[in-house]
Amino acid sequence: MKTLDEIPGELTHAAEMAERTIKLNILSASEMITDIVILYKERCPEVNFQLSQKIDNKDWDIRVSTVIQDDNTKTTHTVLKEEIYLAVPIDSPFAERDNINLEEVHNASFICHDRTKPFSILTTGWCMSCGFEPKIVFESDSPSTVRDLIGAGMGVAFWPAYSWGTQRSSKVKLLHITHPNCTRQIYVARKNEKSSSPLKNDFYNFMTAYLNDLQ
């Protein structure tokens, strides 16, 4: 009987937890979105986040991606156009410049993201459009790892301007790519607005405002 008496309270607690929980599926810009989550937690410490990075995950409230998926149960908005730099070692001859044509590094070794990820597929396409397939020597999704390997002279890499931010190393130089046009769109999608809680809508507005302020 005591257990039965506790059930209504447990159900109420579970409902309250669900109301305060935001499910984020982060398929792009994970470093930047993590920063946004931390800032929002400082503002609203009572909120809980469930984070995932699975393309096939359907159980989410908000998704961040560089690809729009055709699904009528959500609304999608382009909130950020992001330039992609080429990061080169500071002792590279290219480091004396501010701009580069991608064709000029056709013989270079590349440090890239996981080849199955959308960003890597996108950057490989840019290289192919310039007549070469990138020679990949290492794969990593960690900005610090990529930065350190470039600084050690292991190769060059594509560097998202906002997602990874300004690299903090005197051994690496970021170059604007003049050809081809190396930019991407970051999309934020959320489930049907009518079924969202005020807290989820508030976080969505907080995140999109943060991203729009970067431009």
Score class of each variant (00 low, 15 high):
192 N>I: 10
192 N>V: 11
13 H>C: 09
202 D>V: 04
193 E>A: 14
135 K>S: 10
21 T>L: 00
51 L>F: 07
71 D>Y: 08
26 I>D: 06
37 V>E: 03
207 M>Q: 02
7 I>E: 02
159 W>A: 03
140 S>H: 04
27 L>E: 09
144 S>Q: 14
145 T>S: 08
166 T>V: 15
10 E>Q: 11
47 V>Q: 02
67 V>R: 08
186 I>E: 03
199 L>C: 00
146 V>Y: 07
21 T>Y: 00
133 E>D: 13
4 L>A: 10
71 D>P: 07
78 T>M: 15
114 D>S: 07
55 I>A: 14
108 A>V: 10
206 F>K: 00
203 F>D: 02
60 W>H: 04
189 A>H: 05
51 L>A: 03
77 H>L: 14
185 Q>Y: 15
56 D>E: 13
174 L>V: 11
168 R>Q: 15
121 I>N: 07
187 Y>N: 05
193 E>I: 15
169 S>N: 03
168 R>W: 12
67 V>G: 08
92 S>L: 02
155 G>W: 03
151 G>I: 04
213 D>A: 12
198 P>C: 04
99 N>A: 10
51 L>R: 09
57 N>L: 05
117 K>G: 09
79 V>Q: 06
167 Q>R: 10
178 T>K: 05
83 E>I: 11
18 A>Q: 09
106 H>E: 15
128 M>R: 14
165 G>H: 05
165 G>F: 09
198 P>E: 02
125 G>T: 01
186 I>K: 01
18 A>Y: 07
137 V>C: 00
12 T>V: 14
69 Q>D: 14
161 A>C: 11
52 S>Q: 01
36 I>V: 10
36 I>F: 13
125 G>V: 00
59 D>V: 06
36 I>T: 08
175 L>I: 04
115 R>W: 14
54 K>A: 09
119 F>W: 04
132 F>A: 01
61 D>Q: 03
145 T>G: 09
38 I>A: 14
22 I>K: 00
53 Q>P: 11
49 F>H: 00
107 N>V: 08
43 R>N: 10
75 T>E: 13
47 V>S: 04
99 N>E: 15
58 K>M: 13
91 D>F: 15
119 F>L: 08
106 H>C: 15
181 N>D: 11
77 H>R: 15
73 T>E: 12
128 M>G: 08
3 T>M: 12
211 L>A: 00
134 P>H: 01
150 I>W: 03
45 P>A: 02
147 R>F: 08
142 S>C: 07
105 V>Y: 06
193 E>H: 12
159 W>G: 01
106 H>T: 12
195 S>C: 11
186 I>S: 03
208 T>K: 01
72 N>G: 14
208 T>A: 01
212 N>A: 11
172 V>F: 04
55 I>E: 15
34 T>V: 13
132 F>P: 01
50 Q>L: 14
103 E>P: 09
67 V>F: 02
35 D>C: 14
178 T>F: 07
151 G>M: 02
136 I>Y: 02
112 C>P: 13
114 D>H: 07
7 I>L: 05
58 K>H: 14
2 K>S: 13
87 A>C: 03
101 N>W: 10
104 E>L: 12
170 S>G: 10
140 S>Y: 00
13 H>D: 15
119 F>Q: 05
81 K>P: 07
44 C>R: 15
151 G>Q: 05
88 V>A: 05
186 I>R: 00
81 K>Y: 11
204 Y>H: 07
210 Y>K: 08
